[in-house]
Structures are given as structure tokens and as C-alpha cells.
Design a protein around this nucleic acid. Structure first.
Lengths: 245, 245
DNA sequence: GTTAAGTAAATCGTTGACAATCTCCAGTCG
DNA sequence: CGACTGGAGATTGTCAACGATTTACTTAAC
């Protein structure tokens, strides 16, 4: 009952929790994160409803949930808009992410098993190879997994949820992808420092290394961003969409 | 054209953001946090709609937002239920709160002004008096304000939002209120330690003292809870509602 | 007396339609 | 020539009604 059962796809209906709201929500989320709905653009309820073949009710419910999650902004009588991230927003997200990452590290250091350490080590090794090859596309997903694994090892579902929400919000700002030379190597050296702290079951060190890792990520990101903005001359203080994909 | 125009208060509608959804949401939130809707109880859409004199649409939207916030649980085709907190949930909230509080402390230590320090000091002094008198009812709101002020001083709106959501969720577990002797005094001694760290603009110390303060709060809470559970004999592993109000 | 099936009430999920509000564009006046 | 007023179109906010699913109760059989 859990797996397969290759259902005859009614349309696109019932998948998540048997409610259209959930499906619509997931769909809008994808639309936003894929960039099809660019930041600042209005989400037309009617258009979405028509496109997904449902009524406006579920669409509205989904939007309210996404507003609460932080992906959309609601302006009364005007509609919902894809959140636009400015530099301050990105800084906020990075700082909060740093705190959550540090917390996760310190919690995990107190309870991680040897088998789990092996798994983390394997991920870092894989990233080493990607970094050596300068291949961001293979580095990035493993990096995400590395941090997600640590997060899940905390056993704190609220921490996991908060962090993942933050990641989604961060993806609104599509400027990661442009990386400076050595950024990958530096990043993975920090991963190794985290690994070492966890290995020693040193909560304080795990906090520090994790916290700083994200803060360094922030610096690397802004460095790359400013460099690009400088090269791109005019109109660069606006949040520009310079995705690499 | 921008200011005044003192509108003639239509009824009680339009207050928050001119949408019924917002009002309904705030209303349900109050119903939950006041305890009128006890943990685990079903939130009947029709009943709420009737009671507030609106249709079910806005009620559903409000519920979806509250589900996302964590105050309600959604079970498909069965309805939404006021979230029931067990011991593990409370532990999660405390741990996450500790992390956020620590982060706030470390961020504020780097940027707090003398005037702001004076304000924080005044709050701690006020709590000293409440603690000396053993008056929890006057201690509690000042305690909330103390931490909220620090939070706002970070200037990180997402951190503030996350923390406040956590506080609301925590209030679902209505067992704070029963405090052990000396708990107030101990708690405020920890506040003073935080104050000292901020005074020295020592981010690391601010993190530590803040983090530990919340963790000690957790210990104090569970100590009081276990004591009560032991005294209350049977059926104490269930999340019992022993509010003091 | 206990269990199981069947039916009825209640409630959720969704829909389509109506009213209120906003946006945009044309037309007019200073 | 620019700024303000007016109305048409579009979009959001809200509502009442219709199926689908779940729950509770009654009834019958073992």
C-alpha cells in the first residue's frame, strides 16, 4: 500500500495528502523555486487554478500556507507576490541558518554513532573530489545532503523544519551558483573541521565550526556577488537574477 | 491623502489586514492559547464560522496558516486538531529556543548600545523584585519582555518571527506556572549573567549564558513537572493539563 | 451478551457565483 | 502639455451549495 501501485494518474490530483490543497501548494512551490514565477511577480489565483484544473479555493489555501512559510507576500486586495529578497534579507537568512546549523552540530556531537560518522565522512570525501574537479553541479547536492543528514541526526523535527524552510527561502535568491575559485575547496575544509569536532564529540567545537562555516559561506557569497555587481556596472544594487542554471 | 481619514469603524471586521482571514486567524489563535480549545480537540470549521459570523472559506484559510505555524494538526478528511504536545515535543521546543536565544545573544553583543543596555538592566532589576517577592505573575511578563527586547535588538526579523512562533507553540503546553522555590531567583541570576556578557560585548559568552539559561529553564520545568507527576500518582505520563490560571 | 453489518447524520473538500476593490486607460479640463 | 476625473476590465474576498468521506448509532445475527 505504500509503494508503487502505479495509479492511473486521474489528472494530477491526489498525491500528497489526498487533498488538493497539498498538491496545489507543492505545485506552486515548484513554480516558485524553479524560477518560473520570478521574484516580485504576482501569483494570479485564477491563472493557477485554471492551469492546475482546480477551483480557486484550494489555490487560496495553498497561498496562505506559503505566505506563512515565507515564500509569498500577501498584500490585501492586491494578491500574493513571490517574495523579493534584498541584501538584508539574505543576510538575515544566512545568520539564522548559521545559528541553526551550529545548534544542530552541537546537538549531534553529543549523540552521533560511529556508523553515522562513516556516512558523513563519505559525503565529505565525495565533495573533495567534486572540489578538486571544480564541479559545482556535483558538489552542491552533496553539500545539501551533508547538512541535512546532520540536521536529521539531531532528532529535532522542529529544527529540521525550520532549517528546510530557510533553505527554500534562500533559493529565492538565485545567486548561489556563481562561486569564486577555491570556494569549493575552502567550504569542504570547513566541513572537515565540523567532522573532526563531531568525531571528538565536542559540542562546543561542533557549534563553532558549523556556525563559522555558514558565516564564511555568507562572505563567499557576497564576495562573488559584489564582484559580479562591480563587473556588471549599472543597476547592480537591485536584486538581479543572475542564475547559473 | 495618506494620513488620518478617521474611518468609521465598520463593525469589528477589518482590523488586521482588511481581510476576514486575518481576523479569523487571530481569533482562533486566541481561542487556542487561552485554552478554550484544549489540546487535542477538533476545530470544527462550521462551529467557528457560525460563532464568528463568517463563511467557512476564511476559516479554512486561517486554519491552513495555523497548521503551517504549528499550532494545529491537519488530518485529511477528519479535520484540524489543536496540537497535542508530549514530552519530546516540549524538549524539542526548548532546545530550539535555546539555540535561537543563544544566537540572539551573540548577535546583540556585537551591536548593543548603552541606552539599550540600560533598558535591559531595568527589566532585570524589576524581575529581581518579583523574584524576591516570589511573585510569578509579575515575573513572567517581564521575563518575556526581556527576551523579546534582546531578540528585536538583533534586527533579524526572521529570528524574531521564528522565536515568537516557538513561544506560541510552547504555550500549548500549559505547565509553566508551576515553579519550584528559588526558580525565579535562579532564573534572574542567569539573566544577570547574560547582561554581563552583553555589557562586555562578548558574543561567545552571550551565546553561552543565553543558551544555558534556556536549558536550565528546561531542567527547572521538567523538575517541577516530574515532581507534580509523582505527587499526582496515576495517569501522569499523558500530557496533563495542570494550568495554574 | 457480544459482534458485525447497514444506514443515517455530521463534517470535510471542492466548486461556481456574487460583491467589493483595485488597476489601467481614455477623455477632459486647467 | 500635464494632471485630474471617469468608467471598463480584471482580480481578490466572500459566500452558499453540492459530492465524498468519516463517524456514530441502530439493528440483526451468532
Amino acid at each position: 500500500m505504500i509503494d508503487a501501485t502505479a495509479r492511473t494518474i486521474p489528472t494530477v490530483a491526489q498525491m500528497r495528502d489526498n487533498s488538493l490543497s497539498g498538491v496545489v501548494r507543492h505545485e506552486i512551490e515548484t513554480l516558485i523555486l524553479s524560477g518560473e514565477l520570478p521574484a516580485g511577480s504576482r501569483v494570479n489565483e485564477n491563472a493557477i487554478a485554471l492551469r492546475l484544473g482546480v477551483s480557486r479555493g484550494p489555490v487560496r489555501e495553498a497561498c496562505r500556507a506559503l505566505v506563512e512559510l515565507g515564500l509569498l507576500d500577501l498584500i490585501p486586495n492586491r494578491g500574493v507576490f513571490v517574495r523579493r529578497m534584498d541584501r538584508h534579507d539574505v543576510e538575515e537568512v544566512y545568520d539564522l541558518r548559521a545559528g541553526l546549523t551550529g545548534l544542530a552540530g552541537s546537538l549531534v556531537a553529543a549523540r552521533v554513532s560511529d556508523a553515522e560518522m562513516d556516512r558523513l565522512r563519505a559525503l565529505v570525501t565525495a565533495m573533495d573530489e567534486s572540489a578538486a574537479a571544480g564541479d559545482f553541479r556535483s558538489f552542491y547536492p552533496v553539500n545539501l545532503e551533508f547538512h541535512d543528514v546532520i540536521l536529521q541526526l539531531t532528532g529535532n523535527s522542529r529544527l529540521v523544519k525550520s532549517y528546510r524552510a530557510l533553505i527554500k527561502e534562500f533559493q529565492l535568491f538565485r545567486t548561489h551558483g556563481l562561486v569564486q575559485p577555491n570556494a569549493l575547496r575552502e567550504s569542504n575544509e570547513e566541513h572537515r573541521a565540523i567532522l573532526d569536532a563531531l568525531e571528538r564529540r565536542d559540542s562546543a567545537a561542533a557549534y563553532d565550526t558549523s556556525f563559522r562555516h555558514v558565516l564564511h559561506g555568507k562572505q563567499r557569497m557576497f564576495a562573488a556577488f559584489d564582484k559580479l555587481a562591480h563587473a556588471g556596472a549599472a543597476g547592480a544594487n537591485e536584486t538581479h537574477n543572475r542564475t547559473i542554471e
